[in-house]
Design a protein around this nucleic acid. Structure first.
Lengths: 215, 215
DNA sequence: CTGCCATCTGAGCATCGCTTAGATATTCAT
DNA sequence: ATGAATATCTAAGCGATGCTCAGATGGCAG
């Protein structure tokens, strides 16, 4: 009796984590961001919650920015797979652009902590952590390829695809920013809808514009 | 001799500012944000730069959030007048929407420090400073009235204007966010254009979509 | 068993937000 | 003009943060 408790104590209660502390700090950091915002994200607090001393995290992350950079890279990968799926289930490029916007918003709902950190790039010090920049470039490349397909379909004017790429990209970033900051939710509540309905309506509006005949 | 210097010393060198310290802190705060970002904005540092003790700012601002809230309110007023001008010089509602986007971007260029602070609403603690929320609502109301005018002109589908309001609003917020964070500038440099040209092209793309005939 | 490496501790430094008690300047009524 | 009331500032201090470093401890390979 008590044998398993002695031989297999909770990883949290053992002082020496041996590899587990790093992932534990990352997970606790995400929960903390979700609960209290990125302002509350401190290595000291994560160490306290993990039951280790305040210096312990520095054996796994050079500094706070490195932990944040790890979260950002994870987030960009999660986002990228969602965007890929959105394209895969779409029948044409215009529908893919609509689904891209919806997928971005659903990523915001399901991974709000990741997104909150991703939207504060200065916290990750991208100059010191180039993997952040390269991870963030992949979703844009995907978006560009869809815009080019939309040009081939005639929905987007031929020529430089960048304006339309920036348009959709800005729209996605702006919508989730406003959603995380509250004003979208507040307006939707006043209007009797939800933020989920709203992004669908916004995305459908984009689709309606793109499906109008070009003159 | 030396009379005027004795009677009118620099306001900065006088220990007792009597009303001037508040505005001096606000101005120094904006310069600090422009130079080093909002992360560097601390009351202690502003006090140091003003040549005053670390407790002095607390006689003009209850806390850091109150100074930030004052900057945000100023910024929203500056933005609102720009948007009003953009509408005034536009011949129709669709052109007004295009100019609104351009004006938003030019506000970002000319008042980047204000905007950096405005885009971090949690720093201003809007729950404790309701004037922040009301100041931020005026630009949206202006936008909504233009969208409704665009509906009257037939460029926007009739019905609920909110989806188009959120579309333009998100687009503006997203574009300036990406510009402040660097990726827009980086892409434009790689493409041989400027961020100023880019927002004009994006805004013109929106206009082109809105001027297509509705089916 | 020994030695090495990974990991963690604990103390310390500088900075920050904010509070408090008290000192000083300005203003205003008398 | 004088003295009281008010506005403003100082100096010291508390708790928290990021980060560093010397040294202790755990676990694994030889």
């Amino acid at each position: 009796m008590g044998q398993s408790a002695d031989q297999q104590p909770d990883v949290d209660s053992r002082p020496y984590h041996h590899g587990a502390l790093r992932s534990q700090l990352l997970a606790a950091g995400l929960e903390l961001v979700k609960a209290e915002g990125v302002g509350a994200l401190s290595l000291r607090r994560l160490a306290r919650e993990a039951g280790v001393s305040s210096g312990a995290p520095y054996h796994h992350f050079a500094d706070r920015a490195e932990l944040i950079a790890a979260i950002v890279v994870d987030g960009h990968e999660l986002l990228f797979t969602r965007l890929e799926t959105a394209r895969a289930v779409s029948s044409d490029a215009v529908a893919a652009l609509r689904e891209l916007l919806v997928a971005y918003a659903s990523f915001a709902v399901d991974h709000s902590a990741h997104l909150r950190v991703m939207l504060r790039p200065e916290l990750a010090e991208p100059d010191a952590h180039p993997e952040v920049t390269s991870a963030g470039a992949r979703p844009i490349e995907l978006l560009r390829s869809i815009v080019q397909a939309a040009q081939d379909e005639g929905a987007v004017a031929p020529g430089d695809p960048e304006p339309m790429v920036h348009l959709i990209w800005s729209l996605a970033v702006g919508y989730v920013t406003l959603w995380l900051d509250g004003p979208v939710e507040a307006r939707c509540a006043a209007l009797g809808t939800t933020a989920d309905d709203m992004i669908r309506q916004v995305a459908s509006t984009v689709e309606e514009l793109l499906r109008r005949p070009r003159t």
